[in-house]
């Protein structure tokens, strides 16, 4: 029996106790590790997101303690709330893995696979997903759907070919800004993210659409083609910003800040949304108070390159406080030398 007021749910044989109303995906995230279903469209900070990409499908083999019947179909774990005594199979179910493979194939048939020239490569969730669940060859032998690249606003470029229609950017505009200027036009596989007659996205927080985009469909024009992400070094920093929290990640190449993004967690979700001024217009080291190198997953391509040899920017060298904050990282760098 679960703790008072908590539901006990078992995911791939691992039990966890969560508050009622928690989704299966969030319960899995509490457990962590391989059993967390991938999520391309769900974003915990955006209300109403999820349910669309179908990559997080799981099998509910036991509905609840009260009603142990299994659910007839696979369910989207990001939008299905747990019941007490629920049993869920994710990676232990062949049916789930098979369905997920099918979904990944669908997501890729019209994707341009232009990773070599895509700015998102290296931090793209679709790349990760395809490596993990995709097949080596495509069975799609037709011309792919293409769109023209569009500048939506002077700082953001929309590359609709790459879009997987997760709707996250639509929710961002709905929930962070006062007026949404873009949305989904047309339907079916003709659907596209678009603005009303080439209107520009102009809002203090609209830059967050870049952070929430799981693929390279919305890119930062101030960073476009400047560098590959695995050559840049992310450093957490903050500043006193009148508009947002000012907590960001700076992406360094040498001594230059090439881009500024929100701080992302292991599921690629930002902790706090940041404003356009921080993102696009504040790119000098002296504008920021550096904290520490961003923790990057060991498996990420970003750590696979130079990042282990952390070369502290001059600011860190000159400040004893920052040196103390980066002690661990500096020590590691010393060791590696």
């Amino acid at each position: 029996m679960a703790e008072e007021g908590k539901f006990k749910v078992t995911i791939d044989g691992i039990p966890v106790e969560v508050a009622p109303g928690t989704t299966i995906l969030n319960a899995a995230r509490l457990i962590g590790g391989d059993i967390v279903p991938p999520a391309m469209c769900y974003y915990s900070k955006l209300e109403g997101s999820g349910g669309k990409c179908r990559t997080c499908l799981v099998k509910v083999s036991k509905g609840s303690e009260k009603d142990p019947r299994p659910m007839p179909k696979l369910v989207a774990s990001c939008r299905t709330t747990v019941m007490d005594g629920m049993e869920v199979s994710n990676i232990t179910s062949d049916e789930v893995l098979e369905a997920r493979k099918g979904v990944v194939e669908m997501l890729l048939i019209n994707h341009p696979l232009d990773c070599p020239v895509c700015d998102q490569a290296g931090e793209c969730k679709l790349q990760d997903l395809s490596y993990e669940h995709g097949t080596e060859q495509t069975r799609f032998a037709f011309e792919r759907r293409t769109f023209e690249r569009v500048d939506i606003g002077d700082k953001i470029q929309l590359h609709m070919n790459r879009c997987i229609l997760c709707y996250r950017c639509v929710y961002v505009a709905d929930q962070l800004t006062t007026k949404r200027e873009h949305g989904v036009l047309s339907r079916g596989d003709y659907s596209e993210i678009a603005t009303f007659i080439e209107a520009a996205l102009d809002n203090d927080f609209i830059g967050n659409v870049i952070d929430v985009c799981p693929v390279g469909a919305l890119t930062d024009k101030t960073f476009r083609f400047k560098n590959r992400v695995w050559f840049t070094k992310p450093v957490d920093a903050h500043r006193d910003c009148p508009t947002c929290s000012g907590n960001v990640t700076l992406w360094y190449k040498g001594d230059d800040v090439l881009r500024v993004t929100g701080r992302k967690d292991e599921y690629n979700e930002v902790d706090e949304f940041i404003c356009n001024t921080c993102r696009f217009d504040t790119k000098r080291t002296q504008d920021w108070i550096l904290e520490a190198p961003t923790k990057v997953d060991n498996e990420s391509v970003i750590t696979a390159n130079h990042y282990l040899n952390f070369n502290p920017p001059p600011v860190i060298k000159n400040s004893s406080e920052l040196q103390a904050a980066n002690e661990e990282q500096l020590a590691r760098t010393e060791r590696l030398k």
């Binding site: 990409c53 179908r54 979904v103 997501l107 799609f140 037709f142 047309s186 079916g188 596989d189 659907s191």
Partner: peptide, 14 residues
């Protein structure tokens, strides 16, 4: 197809 979820959006066209 409304184009909201991936299997239907991409699969029906395919």
């Amino acid at each position: 197809s409304c184009g909201q979820c991936s299997p239907c959006r991409e699969g029906t066209g395919w």
